[in-house]
Design a protein around this nucleic acid. Structure first.
Length: 479
RNA sequence: CGCGGGGAGGUGUAACGGUUGCACAUCGGGCUCAUAACCCGAAGGCAGUGGGUUCAAUUCCUACCCCCGCAACCA
């Protein structure tokens, strides 16, 4: 079995500040990456930013900025998530990077050589009121909601199209033969149904005269690649395709983590593009749900936006990681409110884990218990400790189940202290008391190792306190 | 008949063809090592509604009601 593992998030589009939905995707991906590393795999973890396209171009113009300066600024803001969420990515890909641009162009040539790219007239609906092109989903009753009294103009332009329709059967075969190609199941069913209904070729270029901010189409100076086409190629450009094929071969294929809004693009369009270019398909697509706030989609106007940086500021990195891993359903939409966050924080981190560490380490240090600890490597290799099971669950996206298992163990340990009462026994039977505390600290050692992918900093603090035989600072203060 | 997801104690949620589990909140008891934390116990759900399959359904099927996403070039 290949002992390398390549995983990536989607690249968020940089027309707004990072929000908690993307934080969810990053943390989920990071947990899997860390669990795989602990299991002994050689891991490559990619994320980055998608920086081309009309919306960015417009925004930059509105703010009277050079598009590159504009995206540089946003890329830096997304880069701050690395530290805020303590994510262990190996590569931060930006689609404006020259190597990526060259890769996207080579990819285009491959698809073109396969006969899958052709020119066609593309009809767009244009609202003269807004002076903007409109898509069907932006319209109400086939009219611009902002200018319902004005007729929409139909404008035509020549675009390049990708022969998506050609790959319908191959895609269906892929889904049928590879039942965990998309997880969860319901998303595989959803994409299968979608493809069964028939595919339309999609436009993959824009006129440069209208929208210059993108990757130039090879051999046609009048056209710019449509942002989707360019952005998807990042998954292979990030690992060296085509300039460093040795690196590419080492890591490809990829496990992709994406939101449910990205199902089609990742599980169908991108796979068809890979087929066209003659590359191996992705290994697996994991589709997470959305985070809602107060039962509603987060929006500035509703005033219910939850900013990941604010949560980290108030509760800390590991508290946010904990919440996203355990209190949020990895596949379904989940509601997040500040109340719920605080409740989960106090119950499980302050009163649960944090308090347990304090009570055990207090006894360890005052009774001077110095157990022999198995090495971390030995614990990871031992089937009996339950650590392996936890890592497996984390690798298989069962974040909640893994966390439930760890917190059940925390509960057991609190119960063990209560029922053996070493703090009382120390006065009458010192040897026995110390034996109990020794059992506890070894169990805590295992717990710390299990926690590593979920709460890396906290796990490190616990391990360090145990190894150094010292009372740690409180891990999570009550709020 | 466009596609898909969901309706469970005060709130939020998990699993499951055969005593509904967990967290928070509430009530009673215990402990003092600990972050007024921890442990034990109690109360609280006819599992949206009607029908069906089954020895047995919250779990499978079906109809209806309600909520939520998506419906392609919007990344």
């Amino acid at each position: 079995m290949k002992d390398t593992f390549y995983i990536t998030t989607t690249l968020p589009y940089v027309n707004a500040d990072p929000h908690i939905g993307f934080a969810l995707e990053l943390v989920q991906t990071d947990i899997i990456a860390r669990a795989q590393r602990l299991s002994g795999k050689d891991v490559f973890f990619n994320t980055g930013t998608d920086e081309h396209g009309q919306k960015i171009y417009q925004k930059a113009q509105e703010e009277r900025k050079d598009p590159q300066a504009y995206v540089d600024e946003f890329a830096a803001r997304f880069g701050l998530l690395k530290e805020a969420l303590n994510v262990s990515y190996d590569s931060f890909s930006r689609t404006t990077d020259p190597a990526h641009i060259a890769s996207a162009q080579e990819f285009w040539r491959k698809c073109d050589a396969a006969g899958d790219i052709y020119k066609k007239n593309y009809k767009v609906k244009y609202c003269v009121g807004c002076e903007l092109e409109k898509t069907d989903s932006e319209l109400e009753d086939d009219r611009c909601p902002l200018h319902p009294d004005k007729e929409l103009e139909i404008r035509e332009e020549e675009n390049y199209f990708f022969r998506f329709s050609k790959y319908q059967d191959k895609l269906l075969a892929l889904y049928k033969e590879n039942l965990d190609f998309v997880v969860p199941d319901m998303r595989l069913r959803e994409i299968t149904k979608f493809v069964e209904r028939g595919l339309q070729d999609f436009s993959i270029s824009r006129l440069k005269a209208k929208m210059p901010w993108g990757v130039p189409v090879p051999g046609d100076p009048d056209h710019i690649m449509y942002v989707w086409f360019d952005a998807l190629v990042n998954y292979i450009s990030a690992i060296g395709w085509p300039s460093d094929m040795e690196k590419f071969e080492k890591w490809w294929p990829v496990v992709q983590v994406a939101g449910k809004d990205n199902l089609r693009q990742q599980a169908a369009m991108w796979q068809a593009m890979l087929m066209s270019a003659g590359l191996l398909l992705s290994r697996q697509i994991i589709i997470h749900g959305f985070i809602t706030s107060g039962g509603k989609k987060m929006s500035k106007s509703a005033g219910n936006v939850i900013n990941p940086f604010d949560l980290v500021e108030e509760y800390g990195t590991d508290a946010l990681r904990y919440f996203l891993a355990r209190e949020v359903n990895p596949f379904e939409d989940s509601d997040v409110t500040m109340e719920r966050f605080k409740e989960a924080y106090n119950a499980n981190l302050a009163n649960g884990l944090g308090n347990l560490v304090s009570r055990i380490m207090k006894m360890v240090t005052s009774y001077d218990v110095r157990p022999e600890l198995p090495s971390e490597e030995d614990v990871l290799a031992d089937d009996q400790t339950g650590v392996k099971d936890i890592l497996n669950e984390l690798s298989n996206f069962s974040f909640q189940k893994a966390a439930d298992g760890i917190w059940a163990e925390i509960g057991n340990m609190d119960f063990f202290i209560q029922s053996t009462q070493p703090f009382k026994l120390i006065k009458t039977d010192e040897k026995k008391a110390k034996e109990y505390v020794e059992v506890l600290v070894i169990k805590l050692w295992y717990v710390a190792i299990m926690l590593t992918p979920l709460l890396p900093t906290t796990a490190e603090k616990i391990k360090s306190a145990i190894k150094n035989h010292e009372m740690p600072e409180p891990l999570f203060m009550r709020k």
